[in-house]
Write a protein that binds this DNA or RNA. Structure first.
Lengths: 184, 184
DNA sequence: GCCGAGGTGTCCCGATCGGGACAAGGAGCC
DNA sequence: GGCTCCTTGTCCCGATCGGGACACCTCGGC
């Protein structure tokens, strides 16, 4: 049977399509792209595209999920490192894929991506807070803060270094969390 | 029929193999590579490799020829630009593909590449000299000078900028050419 | 010398892919 | 509304590719 998902041809086709879509998103924005352009850049046929993905939204969703997994990984991997160092790695990852995040989170991208990102970061924050189920409000707001920090940072041409932004946002988030703790 | 060389599948396979070979040459040197490693990196089967190339030497030969064409193009394109600017572009191209040229020209590479490069540069020099067939000696020596300048530059970790090296080598080459003209 | 490990180059067969066609639908223009 | 143009999603057929096998060769260890 050669389980299609582990077939080299299938994996190669998907890899080429993912790379082509990232390139094109960075070049011209997601919603201005057609399936034909993506497959032409990837040197893959439209038929092969539809054999592997329902439409371009499913493809970009997978790419976004991968990027989010890598982004969250910068915070969760190496738990012994000091938090500020991990936050710096977080924003360095954002800087590294600036054009991808900018295209997906900015005006040309769908609000769907920012919503999903806020939710992922809120989950991460709630998992890293002490296990007090003090409600979902605090993680949700902190997640929104970080997404807004990213969009502000990218929209303004990265006016500060990853380290500086990490210091500032971590400080602000800590203040929010500390304030909420006084409620108990 | 679909003339195989214009078939998208064939072009894609060759593109992936070229890219994989360049990556691996830069990583570990040409002669330490096997066909299997190249095809694995390229996500292509060994059978497909042998459908498109006789062996790894034919593949690297084509890559080298392409690189040489691009390298010579930096000098021949835009003939209105001042020579020093073109020489700077020449060495900038070398710097851009430093690891490729270093791997092919250095100790790990076959002397075949340096020989071929000297010949190509000699031809270029002779075509850009005034149409006096004063023999092949001068172009040959000047070509060797430039190849040696490149290998020295790369072996020593690029101790000068492309512009500086362009100034120096162009000056030395001009001196050789001027001296030879006095023979007539 | 002998042997095993690993690389080379070739072949076959079934699976995936490319090219091209098709109907359906949406956007822009008259 | 009509019309054109483009895109989408699906299908078919022939071509190329992946996986695996094979004999042959070289090299290093014993």
């Amino acid at each position: 049977m050669s389980q299609s998902s582990e077939n080299v041809r299938v994996r190669r086709t998907r890899k080429l399509l993912r790379e082509a879509l990232v390139e094109l998103i960075e070049e011209r924005g997601f919603d201005r792209l057609t399936v034909g352009e993506i497959t032409e850049r990837a040197m893959v046929s439209r038929a092969a595209f539809y054999r592997n993905y329902r439409d371009k939204y499913q493809l970009v969703e997978q790419i976004f999920d991968e990027a989010m997994a890598a982004l969250l990984g910068t915070m969760t991997d190496g738990a012994e490192r000091p938090p500020l160092e991990r936050w710096a790695a977080f924003f360095e990852h954002v800087a590294r894929y600036e054009r991808l995040y900018g295209a997906l989170l900015g005006k040309k991208g769908s609000p769907w991506f920012a919503t999903r990102m806020r939710a992922s970061l809120a989950t991460m924050v709630s998992e890293h807070l002490p296990p007090k189920p003090s409600g979902e409000l605090v993680p949700t707001l902190v997640g929104a803060m970080f997404v807004q920090a990213i969009t502000w940072w990218l929209d303004n041409g990265r006016p500060s270094t990853p380290e500086q932004l990490a210091n500032q946002t971590a400080q602000l988030a800590s203040a929010v969390i500390a304030e909420a703790k006084s409620w108990a």
